[in-house]
Amino acid sequence: MDHGVKIRMKVNGQWREAETTPDRLLIDLLREEFGFTGTKKGCGEGECGACTVILNGRPLLACLIPAAKAEGADILTVEGLTPEQGLHPIQQAFQDEGAVQCGYCTPGMVMTAKALIDENPSPTEAEIKRAISGNICRCTGYTKIVAAIVRGAALLRGEAATTPAGVDRERVPQLPPVGPG
């Protein structure tokens, strides 16, 4: 490859290296070289927050960062958040609250929420809204996302969530089984 450069970074706790072009963006390196496709490319212009990853402890937009700028950085993507078994408490809270519709914004939302709760274990609703102001969701209208982050923070503090989850599975109407005509 012409002008190939080696870029090395710690992703989800493991050092990884790729040989790539010098103008590769972090989002493309993560997705295409390292296979972490949980990080989504939405607008590609730093507007939507779908590509949010945690880089050296801060939520940042992988679509605006040259991969070479992240040389040596410590990066967490949604894959690194997810435990071997089950879900991370924030992911669990998103599921419990029904905070996912199409799901495209969810990895970015979850990473933004993780960075917020790491810094502020008991965020208020106003603090949550400010924290996710750079993450756009075009499905849910945010109410359930905010509720999920409140719930996720409570779970991470080791508390039972103070309010019942928004989704009561018993009451979700079941579709009749699809059978031959």
Binding site: L60, S133, G134
Partner: peptide, 9 residues
């Protein structure tokens, strides 16, 4: 300025 993610960098 921008969003939290933008202000971080």
């Amino acid at each position: 300025v921008g969003s939290p993610q933008i202000r971080n960098i």
